[in-house]
Amino acid sequence: MTSALQPTAPAAAAEPAAAGPAARPGEPGTLRRLLRRPRFFLPLGVVVLLCAMAAVPSAFAGWFGHGDPHQCSLEHSGQGPAPGHPFGFDVQGCDLYSNVVHGARDSISIGLLTTALTLVVAVVLGSLAGYFGGVADMLISRLMDVFFGFPMLVGMIVVLETFSVHSILSVSLVLALFSWPVLTRIMRSSVLATRGLDYVTAARELGAGPVRILLRHAIPNAIMPVAVLTSINIGGVITAEASLTFLGVGLTAPAISWGVQLNSAQQYFTTHPGLLLFPALFLSLAVLSFVLLGDCLRDAFDPRLR
C-alpha cells in the first residue's frame, strides 16, 4: 500500500512492509498454494489432459466406440453424432472423436518441440546480445532484422518444399527457424534492462564472472516476459502448424493432426460444421490453456507477488 501512497518515490516505499504479514518464514509449498487457485488448476488440468491424450491417444479414443481413427467406412460419410461416435464421422466415414483425440499428439508435439527449440535459441542469443552488447549484439540483432524483414509464410513454404519428409521434427525445425527472432528480441531487451540494475552491478563488483552473472542474476530475472510469451507461443505454433498443413506444406495425411482435420474440413464445413467445429474447439482449448497457465506461472514464480 505504501507504493500506492507515493508512487513516484520508489525509494520511499514500504518501510512498514517488514511488520506486515509478508514477513513469513521461507516459502515452501508454492505448488500447494497454486493448486488451490482455480485460475491455475483449470488450465493445468486441461493441459495435462491434452498431454496425456497426446502421449497415449488410444486410452482416450476408445471411451465411446472402437477408437480406431483409421477404421472408416464410407457409408457413414459426414454423418452426425451417433451412439459410440459422439462427434459423428468425417467425409471418409472415420470416427471424428478418435481422430480429434489422435490429432492431439502431432499438434501438441509440434507446439512443445518448436517452443522448446525457440526458447533455447532465444535465451542463448538474447542473453549474449543483451549482456555483452557490442559486436555480438550487432550480429545477432541484424540477423533478427533479416528474419523480421522476410515474409515468414513464404519462407516456411519454401523451406518445407525442399524437405522430402514432413515429419514432426522437420515441421518443428522450420517453425522454430522462423519464430525465434520474436522471443530473442524480447529476451535481449529484458537482459539489457536487467544488466543495468544495481544488483547485477553488485555481483560484478563482488568479482562474479559473466557466466555466473548471466546464470544466477540476469537470466532468472529477465526470463519472465519471455516465459509468458513462450506459453502463448505454444498456442501460436499449434495454430501455425495448422495453417501450414492447411496450405498443404505441413503434415499430410495419413498423419493426423488438428491442422490436417481443419484442412480437410474446409470444403465441407457448410454442410458438415462438426468437421470444423470439433478440431477447432480442441485447438482453441489447448491454446487458451497454455496461455492461461503461462500467466499463472509467471505470478507464482515471482517472489514479489507471493
Binding site: G26, Y199, A203, L206, R216, H217, P220
Partner: peptide, 26 residues
C-alpha cells in the same frame, strides 16, 4: 561498494542467505 537504493541492489529472486553468501561463492 554499498549502493544507494536497497530496493535495487538486492536480487529479488535470491533469499537473504544466498545474497549474503554470494561473496563466499565467488
Amino acid at each position: 561498494l554499498v549502493f544507494q537504493d536497497p530496493y535495487a541492489s538486492l536480487d529479488p529472486r535470491m533469499t537473504v542467505e544466498a545474497i549474503v553468501r554470494e561473496p563466499f561463492v565467488i
